[in-house]
Simulated assay, not measured.
Amino acid sequence: MEIRVLRYFLTIVETGSVTKAAEVVRVAQPSLSRQLRGLEATLGMTLFDRGGKQMVLTAAGRRFLPLARDLVARADAAEAAVGALAAGRAMRITVAAPPTTITDVIAPFLATWGPEDPLVTVQAESPAHAYQALARGADVAISSAPPRSRFAGLPVARLPLWAYVRADHAWADRDRVTIRELAAEPLIVLTPAHGTRRILDHAVQDADASYDIVLECDTPHVAQAMAASGHGVAVVSDDPRFDLHPLLILDSTGEPLQIHLHAAWGADHYALRSIEAFAAGLSRFCVERYGPQVAARL
C-alpha cells in the first residue's frame, strides 16, 4: 500500500470524481482508475459505490477513510522531519536549565515565539548538572557554570545579583549597596549549589568581610518570601516578587555582581542551526528585557 495511492484516494473523496481528482493530482484518468482498483484489491474491499454520477464511499470506504487520513498525515510529518534533519533544523528542542532561569528568562522568551518556531520542552536541572542533561537527550543546556571545552556554545547574558529588601527597610530609597554594607545585614541566601551563592561568597571574601546567614534556601522564591516576611535581606538573581525593592550589589571594585549564563550543546548535533538560533535569540531577549548592560561578552 503506497502513500501516493492513499493520497489519490483522499483526493477522489474530496472531489467526488475520478475525473476531477485526476486533474488535481495531474495523473491520467485511466491510470488513476487502475491504481484505485489496485488499492481496493490490496485491501480486499470496495471503497466506492460507482452506480451514480459521483463516487460515493461504501460503508467499508467510510471506515477506511480516517485510517487513510492518519497514514497520510503521519507520512507528511515524517517527510517534514526528514527535511528538517537534512537542513540542520529541529522541529522540537529540549532545553535543560535551572528553575530560576526557566521562570524568569526561558519561559518569557518562548512566549515571544510563533507557531512556525520549534516546539520546546524544558526540564529543570541544577546549574551543576545542566550540562549532564546533554548526555541524557537534552539538545541545549543553560547554566551559570562555564561549559566544558568539548561542547559548542556561546555566552547568553550577564544578569545582576540583587539584594531584596522590604519597602520599610532603610535601603528602600536606594538602588545599590556595597558588598561590605550587605555583609553587615542578616542575609537570606541560597545553598552553595547555586551560582548566586558562590558569587556572593567570593565577593565577600575578596572584600575581606564576613556575613551572617539567617537562612539558606533551595529556591529563590522562598528566599524572597522570607525577606518579605521581615527575616532579612534576600540575595538572589531572579526577578522581584512580593513587592520587594531590588538593589544592585557592588563588589570591592565598585562593579555590580553578576551571574553569567552560558548555553552549550553537542558540537556534532544534527540541528546546529536551530540550536544556535535559539541561544542567540535568548541572548537578544535578555538584552531587550533587562537592558544593554546584561549583554554577554564574547
Rank of each mutant, 00 (worst) to 15 (best):
F278I: 03
D139Q: 02
K20R: 15
H269L: 10
P246G: 10
P240N: 05
A172P: 00
Q35P: 04
L154H: 08
A87H: 04
L39E: 03
Q132P: 02
D212Q: 14
G153N: 04
A111Q: 14
A207F: 06
L261M: 12
S33L: 11
K53M: 08
A184H: 07
S31M: 10
P246C: 12
R63Q: 15
G153Q: 05
A225V: 01
A167R: 15
S252V: 15
L10F: 07
A86I: 10
P30G: 09
G114L: 06
M55L: 13
A59H: 10
V236Q: 01
P147C: 07
R148E: 15
D173S: 09
V105W: 03
V235L: 12
L67Q: 13
G44T: 06
F9V: 04
M91Q: 15
Y270H: 15
D208P: 00
A227S: 09
A107D: 11
V120N: 04
T15A: 04
A22I: 02
A207Y: 07
S33W: 09
M45I: 15
A60K: 10
H260E: 10
A280G: 11
R273A: 15
L248Q: 11
V287W: 04
C286E: 02
H129M: 14
I199S: 04
P256K: 06
V294S: 03
P66N: 07
F109D: 03
P127C: 12
D206E: 12
S143K: 03
G52A: 13
R92N: 13
I179L: 05
H269R: 15
G16Q: 01
Q132E: 14
C217N: 13
V27K: 05
A263Q: 03
A264Y: 04
D239N: 10
A167G: 13
R174K: 09
A124F: 05
E216D: 11
S31L: 11
G61S: 04
V72G: 01
L190W: 02
A80H: 07
